[in-house]
Amino acid sequence: MSSTPVAPNVSQLTKLQIETVKRWHSEPIENTYSGFEAQVCQQHEHNFRLWHEEDTARSPSATDSEIANVKRAIDRLNQARNDMIEKLDDAITEMLCDAGIALAQSKPINTETPGSAIDRLSIMSLRLFHYGEQLEREDADAEHKRKVAERIALCEQQHGDLSNSLQELLDDIFAGRKQHKTYRQMKMYNDASLNPAIYKSK
């Protein structure tokens, strides 16, 4: 017997992202969630680690060796992040199947999958947290803080717009009004058999 089709709650997912960004800056990274939320948290963790590696890569004091190591870490994290986007979309497919919702090919399809939108919301939560840090800088002047406040307001608007759009998309998918599928990203640069810079060096 199929279960009642209930779409994931985007408000809960964004709350998870916002709260873990704050917590992970003061406590060890830990995933205490279950089910779909645990997968969202795992994908979010890759973005969290990626954000800080990107900061390190741009440090004027970083040596060539340090930048090379950070670049390799960024590649690994970015691959893991993209793999998790696909897993999020696969998990939604499983939810639909469990709920007995047919994946009708004739329904309209969005240009962006739910997994990709969840990834964007993850990055926005990181951006909002770090812009918030800028407002608290004691060495920043009033003009800097004014610009930061304007950007925070814009980010919050974009975050709200995307959250609402994602919830509408998920509701449409679970109601059978929109088609859902996982789009394989098929990255080539980390594949030793596809990247000529790798296979030609052997």
Rank of each mutant, 00 (worst) to 15 (best):
M84I: 06
L194S: 11
E27G: 00
R49H: 08
S116C: 07
N164C: 11
D139K: 15
A80R: 06
N31G: 00
S3E: 13
L96C: 08
K22P: 01
E86H: 08
S193M: 10
K187T: 08
L135M: 12
C155T: 12
E136H: 09
A80K: 11
M84E: 12
E168D: 03
C155M: 14
L16A: 01
M124W: 05
G35N: 07
Y189I: 07
A57S: 14
V148L: 08
C97F: 13
E112R: 06
N31H: 03
Q79L: 09
E37K: 02
P8T: 06
L77H: 06
D119S: 12
S193G: 05
I152Y: 01
D55R: 07
A57F: 13
Q185V: 10
S65D: 15
L170T: 02
R23H: 05
D55H: 10
S106N: 12
S106I: 09
R58Q: 08
L154P: 00
Q105G: 01
T56I: 10
A149L: 13
A7I: 00
E19Y: 03
A7V: 06
A117W: 05
A117L: 13
D141A: 08
D119I: 02
M84H: 12
E150V: 11
Q105V: 02
C97W: 13
R127V: 13
I85G: 03
S65H: 13
R23G: 01
L77E: 00
Y131Q: 15
A91F: 05
A192R: 09
E168H: 00
Y33F: 09
I92K: 00
E112P: 02
E150N: 15
N82T: 06
G115A: 10
T63R: 03
L13V: 06
T113K: 01
S59A: 14
K202M: 15
Y33N: 03
N47S: 15
Q79R: 11
T93V: 13
A192Y: 12
T93L: 14
R151W: 06
V40Y: 00
L170R: 02
K71M: 13
H144M: 14
R120D: 11
A73K: 12
I74V: 12
H46E: 07
